[in-house]
């Protein structure tokens, strides 16, 4: 374990930028964790609005139901650490806009719900942003089985999750496992940025 004081950590992070692709369960929790420790700049993108059913895992509040997720998250981060510069994009990410939105990010966090979107950003980053580090979430559904959650690495892509349990009618994504994986993604971002 590398040792640094919180002051040293904050000083390094103040000059860093992280991209958060999707601000649902993984993205909202990951962004909040990184904001708390002093990330300088957080670029978020999502097209969705906060709904009642999101509150079992996503970092939003009941009175934010109906708000655009990127704006609600920006508000919540400002309440926690107003020094973080949040740039919120209310858009649906695609292979054309990803390199523009996340072009100057030190690390990109993939925090989508759908597997097809996860593949889309992985292909886009590998193809159009060579060398850029992508931290993905893969397998968060259900409860229990802590020790199945791990990180696998493939070149510049890191993948956190149990790599197995897909969301379904009887396998809902819930706060504990989703925030464990979001926390692992944030922890990896720190490891990458702080060395």
């Amino acid at each position: 374990m590398q040792k640094k004081s919180f002051e040293e950590i904050r000083t390094i992070l103040a000059s860093k930028t992280v991209g958060i692709a999707g601000t649902g369960g993984l993205g909202s929790n990951c962004a909040v964790a990184l904001a708390r420790v002093g990330m300088g700049r957080v670029i978020t993108a999502d097209f969705d609005t906060v709904s009642e059913s999101n509150l079992n895992r996503q970092y939003f509040f009941k009175d934010q139901v109906g708000m655009k997720k990127v704006l609600a998250l920006k508000e919540n981060i400002a309440r926690i650490n107003p020094e973080v510069l949040v740039e919120a994009f209310d858009i649906k990410l695609d292979p054309l806009n990803i390199p523009q939105v996340f072009g100057d990010c030190d690390v990109i966090v993939e925090a989508f719900d759908l597997a097809a979107m996860k593949l889309m950003i992985a292909e886009t980053v590998l193809e159009k942003m060579p060398g850029r580090i992508l931290v993905m979430g893969n397998g968060v559904a259900g409860y229990g089985n802590n020790d199945a959650i791990k990180t696998v690495k493939s070149g510049n892509i890191y993948i956190c999750g149990d790599q197995e349990n897909e969301t379904g009618e009887n396998l809902p994504p819930l706060a504990p496992r989703v925030s464990i994986v979001a926390g692992m993604q944030a922890n990896l971002v720190l490891e990458i940025l702080l060395g």
């Binding site: 999707g22 993984l26 996860k118 292909e123 993905m136 559904a141 349990n165 969301t167």
Partner: peptide
């Protein structure tokens, strides 16, 4: 290897292949 290229991408002796499956949930 992109999805569109699965039928034409060729694997040869000695190649190092990785296949990671992505699943929904987040």
């Amino acid at each position: 290897v992109k999805k569109d290229d699965y039928y034409k991408a060729v694997i040869k002796d000695g190649d190092d292949v990785s296949v990671i499956h992505l699943i929904s949930g987040g």
